[in-house]
Design a protein around this nucleic acid. Structure first.
Length: 241
DNA sequence: TCATTAAATTGTT
DNA sequence: AACAATTTAATGA
């Protein structure tokens, strides 16, 4: 049933403020923009719900309008590998839609979310007609490649503090997720699912990072104060940066 | 607007 | 995993 979520009736056209949240619409010509807008649809998923699983034929290019998604894959051993979190402003599926193949990962909602879906045909049409759109997609691909490489490194790290730090840095990536300032609205529970640690350990790690001055912990989220430190620092102790 | 209550989230063991 | 403390959201006077 989860596979067909996007095919059911929960779709609707985008509202004006939702269109504004889509970063690539402004790079299109007015005519292209209208065509794209007409082929965009919104649908909602509840927390914990699966948007699609690996193997489903790629029908849409997706973007997060609101909420938070988890991109993961199932390894041969049966455990789940989390690649990345996708916050508002992030788009995914371009690789598989490009080749008209099946999605190669699972997308699950970590909280109630609203997604925008661009039909595959329109996605291809835009690629054929709009240079600006091509730039956006190419940039997206390039950034995600870097993100996956970073993700592999994160997975090898044993120190939970550093895993949390790097994951936060990945979530803040300004190119893939232009919607972000320095505040990250993610609960410690959600972050725990994302990083693959217990909530308690994430809480401990956040306390350490806050003691360093790299972040400030807030209710229901946190504020990134030193992105560079989160990305590069190999030791987080209580000393200020 | 304020007080009360419920729900969500955090901090700790 | 369980519990207490804290913050936010919702409700109604």
């Amino acid at each position: 049933m989860t596979i067909d979520n996007f095919n059911h009736q929960r779709r609707r056209a985008l509202l004006a403020h939702e269109l504004q949240a889509i970063a690539w619409l402004p790079v299109l010509s007015p005519a292209d923009r209208e065509r794209a807008s007409n082929n965009l649809e919104i649908f909602e998923v509840q927390s914990g719900e699966t948007v699609f699983n690996m193997g489903r034929p790629a029908t849409h290019w997706f973007g997060v309008v609101e909420g938070l998604l988890k991109m993961s894959s199932d390894s041969a051993e049966g455990n789940t590998l989390t690649f990345a979190g996708v916050p508002p402003g992030g788009w995914f599926g371009e690789g598989t839609v490009l080749k008209r193949e099946a999605y190669r990962y699972n997308i699950q909602a970590l909280r109630k979310s609203r997604l925008a879906g661009l039909q595959a045909n329109t996605f291809h049409w835009l690629l054929d007609h709009s240079i600006g759109f091509n730039r956006f997609v190419m940039n997206q691909l390039n950034e995600r490649l870097g993100q996956f490489i970073a993700g592999r490194e994160i997975d090898r790290m044993t120190d939970p503090d550093i895993r949390v730090a790097r994951s936060l840095a990945a979530l803040m990536n300004p190119v893939l997720y232009p919607g972000f300032s320095t505040v990250l609205n993610i609960t410690q529970q959600e972050l725990a699912y994302l990083v693959g640690l217990s909530r308690q350990r994430v809480n401990e790690a956040l306390t350490v990072l806050a003691a360093c001055g790299a972040i400030a912990v807030e209710y229901g989220g946190l504020r990134v104060l030193n992105l560079h430190a989160l990305r590069t620092r190999t030791v987080f102790d209580a000393r200020p940066l």
